[in-house]
Simulated scan of single mutants.
Amino acid sequence: MEILIFFIAHWYLSLLMQTFFLHRYAAHKMFTMSPAWEKIFYTLTWIFQGSSFLSPYAYGVMHRLHHAYADTENDPHSPSFSDSVMDMMWKTKNYYNKIVHKTDNIDPKFKKGVPNWTFMERLGDLWVSRIGWGVLYVMFYIHFATAWWMFLLLPVHFLMGPIHGVIINWYAHRYGYVNFKVDDTAKNLLPFDFLMMGESYHNNHHKYGGRANFGFRWHEFDPTYPFILILNKLKIIKLKPNNDLNYM
């Protein structure tokens, strides 16, 4: 039972930071927050993503490029220009590393306003940090696992962030249904997104890139949106006016 709870908690807490902080805040600026709260969410991203920490700065820049050049040769991660899932993930990793290490030649307009806390960016990318989190996961499993097959879940913990990314960047550009006509292959992967906290409504998001609520139809519940509304009500964040009409 402890292993199941830990796995589910890690899956959804890691995903929450990716969809809320990296995607909707760092990339799209759907809402604002104070510098202090930005550092708090930076730290929570490091804790919840752990060994698979994704740089909010690199994620934000790369995702903006994805929207600008979706399904073209300039898209950092497009199934249309990759031979397989692994090929796309490898290309994405190389693109990501160039941004993290500031060796890219990306137009500065894509970097404008993207959060960049140097200390946490460096800490999260250190191998000692990634391996340290991995060791903690292994120790937890050694203590609580009751069957050998449970250890097969460990690679998912190690690569949680990239796994979440590839589910959308590969599968939501190949499978699913379409609500809106867009200039790329983005689709809504799941009619009820119990798995990806709203991220699988990818066609909706590509049509309205600045809309904080990714769901449109009656069955398209976006679990992250109520979380955003609560934080807005508590004045931790501030949703931009007329959010449904905001575009990047």
Rank of each mutant, 00 (worst) to 15 (best):
H66T: 13
E220W: 08
K233M: 11
F194M: 12
I236F: 02
D184Y: 03
A186T: 14
L15Y: 05
M248H: 10
H164P: 11
S14E: 10
H101V: 08
H28Q: 08
G209W: 00
N232R: 01
F41Q: 05
I168P: 07
A9W: 07
L153K: 01
D222L: 06
D222N: 04
D83F: 15
Y177R: 11
E121Q: 13
W149H: 09
S55W: 07
S51M: 02
M62C: 12
Y42L: 06
S52N: 03
F158W: 06
F21D: 11
S200P: 06
R211F: 01
P35L: 09
T72E: 15
T224H: 00
M17Q: 06
I168M: 04
W90H: 02
D71W: 10
E73I: 15
F158V: 08
W133M: 08
N204A: 07
A70Y: 07
S52I: 02
D125I: 04
S34R: 00
L190S: 07
F140N: 03
I99L: 10
P241E: 11
N188I: 06
A58D: 01
A212Q: 00
M160Y: 04
D87T: 01
I168K: 00
F21E: 09
Y201S: 05
I230L: 14
G176K: 07
G124L: 05
Y175I: 15
S129W: 12
P155F: 15
R64T: 14
H77E: 13
F110R: 01
H143Q: 10
L152T: 10
A26I: 07
A70I: 10
G210F: 03
A68H: 12
Y42W: 12
D222R: 00
A68D: 14
A172T: 08
H63W: 08
K112W: 03
T185R: 09
N105S: 11
Q49I: 10
P241W: 10
D75K: 02
L65A: 03
P155V: 14
T45P: 00
L189G: 09
I3P: 04
N246G: 03
W133A: 09
F81K: 07
H23P: 07
F158A: 04
L229N: 07
F48Q: 02
W90Q: 01
L126T: 14
H164S: 14
F227Y: 09
H157W: 03
D83C: 14
A9Q: 05
G60F: 07
N243V: 12
I47C: 02
M160N: 06
M248S: 14
G198M: 08
P155Y: 14
S78V: 14
D83W: 12
P223L: 13
R64W: 14
R24A: 05
L13Y: 07
K238G: 12
G50I: 09
M197E: 06
I3W: 01
G161T: 13
A27P: 06
F53N: 04
W148G: 06
V156D: 03
W46K: 01
V61L: 15
S55D: 11
P115Y: 08
F151C: 11
N169V: 13
I163F: 08
I142M: 07
R174N: 15
G198C: 10
H10G: 00
H202N: 03
L4E: 05
F81V: 15
I167G: 02
K233P: 06
P162R: 05
S200G: 08
Q18C: 08
V114H: 00
F227I: 15
F214V: 00
